[in-house]
């Protein structure tokens, strides 16, 4: 599934749409450069989950937990785990708590991820640096996430 959003408010709207469809243990892997809109999308998801506090960047803290919404939301950034020898970082203990997880820079922990996830890639369009347009590419692994994509296809973000 892929589509284009015209500006930040549409990226936010897509996040809100997605936030209504996630269930416990939904793992969303978010790929995109600095400034691509990963935080905006996460804000949309959080809003739909009823999180009231601002969504702040998890880059420094690695994990930010939002526990007061419809479902717990963990926003994680694996950027700082750029290392080949991370076998004992206890990511599993985060998965085991069953929250919705939005994970950035998952490439750094690929071998520790569960077998089903939704991967969302956000790209700038036409190589235009100032452009607000973003190309979204969604890939679902696992039955639950395939169903989620089918539901998304029924929305205005059908591409």
């Amino acid at each position: 599934m892929q589509f284009v959003t015209q500006d930040e408010s549409q990226t936010m709207a897509f996040g809100q749409q997605l936030g209504q469809l996630v269930t416990p243990k939904t793992l969303i892997l978010l790929d995109g450069d600095l400034g691509a809109g990963k935080t905006t999308l996460t804000k949309g998801i959080a809003t739909a989950l009823g999180v009231k506090r601002p969504i702040k960047s998890p880059t420094f803290t690695i994990v930010r937990e939002y526990l007061k919404g419809r479902l717990p939301l963990f926003h994680m950034d694996m950027y700082r785990l750029e290392d080949g020898d991370m076998s004992s970082i206890d990511l599993q203990s985060y998965f085991d708590q069953g929250p919705v997880i939005v994970m950035e820079w998952s490439v750094n922990v690929l071998d520790q991820l569960p077998e089903d996830y939704l991967r969302i890639k956000i790209e700038r369009l036409d190589n235009e640096i100032d452009s607000t347009k973003r190309h979204f590419i969604l890939e679902a692994i696992g039955e639950k996430n395939n169903e989620l994509i089918e539901e998304l296809k029924k929305t205005s973000f059908s591409g």
Binding site: F60, I62, Y79, R80, D83, M86, S88, I89, D90
Partner: peptide, 9 residues
Amino acid sequence: RFGGVVPEV
């Protein structure tokens, strides 16, 4: 060399 904090380390 890792570009930041490494929790496990």
